[in-house]
Amino acid sequence: MKVLLMGHPNVGKSVFFNRLTGSNAIESNYPGTTVDYTKGYMLLENKDVEVIDVPGIFSLEPKDRAEEVSVKMLEEEKDAIVVCVFDASKIERGLYLALEIIEKGYPVIIALNMWDVATDKNIAIDVKNLEKILGVPVIATTAISGEGIAEVVSRIGEASPVKIRNIIKNAGD
């Protein structure tokens, strides 16, 4: 089993990665810091699980070299669990990418990262409801201070593929 960290540029994937694995991916406060993938290991239920920090992408149609790396990575790792890292204050864009990945049949778990920024901006997100609609685990996190990371780890096992039909149905009512 492998875990891929995917999401838009500069949502804190590398911070997340370092938190999970204790390794040294370079973190910066600008989009595009990670242009190649970084691998590391985390302990999950006493097993070493490979975690891959993937360069940020906007959608699965790549527009530069770094994004090509990400899309290729996703295609090669057919049995991976994808942790979608969102910027919680820009949830729509995050959802776009997450839906694309869900449609491809990957088990997904969503981290609404930069929760502190969203709170600063007075954006309230009903996490429970979002989880119900999508049918995948959704966790509010602030990776930079470590909030919510433990919950992400403990719920990685819950991730399973969902049908897009069900999401449409859930969103409809």
Partner: peptide, 29 residues
Amino acid sequence: MGLSVDERWDLIDKISKETVTFGKYKHTL
């Protein structure tokens, strides 16, 4: 694979209407 780009955005619209409320955002210093 199923949704077109527009369908996907429609769905996102619906989901975010259900779950996200934007409070009034005041500019900070």
